[in-house]
Amino acid sequence: MMVKIMYDAYSMNTLQYDQTLCNGCGMCVNVCPHAVFEMHARKAMMVNPLACMECGACQLNCVTAAIKVDSGVGCAAGMIRAALQGKPEAECS
Protein backbone atom coordinates (compact mmCIF):
# COMPACT_ATOMS: atom_id res chain seq x y z
CA MET A 1 0.00 0.00 0.00
CA MET A 2 2.73 2.48 0.97
CA VAL A 3 4.62 1.70 -2.23
CA LYS A 4 1.50 2.39 -4.29
CA ILE A 5 1.00 5.80 -2.66
CA MET A 6 4.55 6.68 -3.69
CA TYR A 7 3.47 7.01 -7.29
CA ASP A 8 -0.31 7.11 -6.97
CA ALA A 9 -1.87 8.77 -3.94
CA TYR A 10 -5.17 8.68 -5.82
CA SER A 11 -5.49 4.89 -5.81
CA MET A 12 -7.94 5.17 -2.92
CA ASN A 13 -10.51 7.66 -1.67
CA THR A 14 -13.20 8.18 0.96
CA LEU A 15 -16.27 7.46 -1.19
CA GLN A 16 -18.70 4.99 0.42
CA TYR A 17 -22.02 3.82 -0.96
CA ASP A 18 -24.72 1.65 0.61
CA GLN A 19 -26.80 0.31 -2.25
CA THR A 20 -29.48 -1.06 0.07
CA LEU A 21 -30.51 2.54 0.82
CA CYS A 22 -30.81 3.56 -2.84
CA ASN A 23 -34.28 4.64 -3.97
CA GLY A 24 -33.28 4.79 -7.62
CA CYS A 25 -33.80 8.53 -8.13
CA GLY A 26 -30.65 8.80 -10.24
CA MET A 27 -29.54 12.12 -8.80
CA CYS A 28 -25.98 10.84 -8.14
CA VAL A 29 -25.67 9.89 -11.81
CA ASN A 30 -26.77 13.41 -12.77
CA VAL A 31 -24.42 15.34 -10.49
CA CYS A 32 -21.20 13.31 -10.75
CA PRO A 33 -18.68 15.02 -13.07
CA HIS A 34 -16.64 11.82 -13.45
CA ALA A 35 -19.33 9.20 -14.18
CA VAL A 36 -18.69 7.24 -10.98
CA PHE A 37 -22.32 6.05 -10.84
CA GLU A 38 -24.58 4.36 -13.38
CA MET A 39 -28.16 3.17 -13.13
CA HIS A 40 -28.67 -0.59 -13.32
CA ALA A 41 -32.06 -2.19 -12.65
CA ARG A 42 -33.40 0.98 -10.96
CA LYS A 43 -30.51 1.16 -8.55
CA ALA A 44 -27.41 3.31 -8.73
CA MET A 45 -24.20 1.32 -9.07
CA MET A 46 -20.71 2.52 -8.35
CA VAL A 47 -18.99 1.65 -11.63
CA ASN A 48 -15.83 3.74 -11.37
CA PRO A 49 -15.14 4.66 -7.73
CA LEU A 50 -11.48 5.58 -8.31
CA ALA A 51 -12.51 8.42 -10.63
CA CYS A 52 -14.09 10.15 -7.60
CA MET A 53 -12.63 13.59 -6.82
CA GLU A 54 -14.54 13.88 -3.52
CA CYS A 55 -16.50 16.98 -4.58
CA GLY A 56 -19.41 15.81 -2.41
CA ALA A 57 -22.20 16.55 -4.94
CA CYS A 58 -23.63 13.02 -4.76
CA GLN A 59 -23.74 12.95 -0.96
CA LEU A 60 -25.44 16.35 -0.77
CA ASN A 61 -28.05 15.39 -3.36
CA CYS A 62 -28.78 11.87 -2.13
CA VAL A 63 -32.15 12.08 -0.41
CA THR A 64 -31.73 8.72 1.39
CA ALA A 65 -28.15 9.45 2.55
CA ALA A 66 -26.85 6.31 0.87
CA ILE A 67 -23.59 8.01 -0.13
CA LYS A 68 -20.85 9.20 2.20
CA VAL A 69 -17.69 10.99 1.14
CA ASP A 70 -15.20 13.16 3.00
CA SER A 71 -15.60 16.02 0.57
CA GLY A 72 -13.42 19.01 0.07
CA VAL A 73 -11.34 20.90 -2.42
CA GLY A 74 -8.46 18.79 -3.73
CA CYS A 75 -6.09 21.71 -3.78
CA ALA A 76 -2.65 21.63 -2.20
CA ALA A 77 -2.33 25.43 -2.01
CA GLY A 78 -5.61 25.68 -0.10
CA MET A 79 -4.62 22.96 2.35
CA ILE A 80 -1.18 24.45 2.96
CA ARG A 81 -2.73 27.85 3.61
CA ALA A 82 -5.33 26.28 5.92
CA ALA A 83 -2.61 24.44 7.82
CA LEU A 84 -0.46 27.57 8.21
CA GLN A 85 -3.38 29.70 9.38
CA GLY A 86 -4.86 26.96 11.56
CA LYS A 87 -8.16 27.17 9.70
CA PRO A 88 -10.39 24.33 8.52
CA GLU A 89 -9.66 23.06 5.04
CA ALA A 90 -11.67 23.58 1.84
CA GLU A 91 -10.79 27.21 1.23
CA CYS A 92 -9.33 28.31 -2.05
CA SER A 93 -8.85 31.62 -3.75
Binding site: Y10, M12, T14, S71, G72, V73, G74, C75
Partner: peptide, 8 residues
Protein backbone atom coordinates in the same frame (compact mmCIF):
# COMPACT_ATOMS: atom_id res chain seq x y z
CA UNK B 1 -10.74 18.95 -12.30
CA UNK B 2 -10.04 15.49 -10.90
CA UNK B 3 -7.79 15.41 -7.81
CA UNK B 4 -9.46 14.29 -4.58
CA UNK B 5 -8.87 15.92 -1.22
CA UNK B 6 -7.69 12.73 0.48
CA UNK B 7 -5.34 12.01 -2.43
CA UNK B 8 -3.79 15.47 -2.36
Amino acid sequence: TFTSKSGV
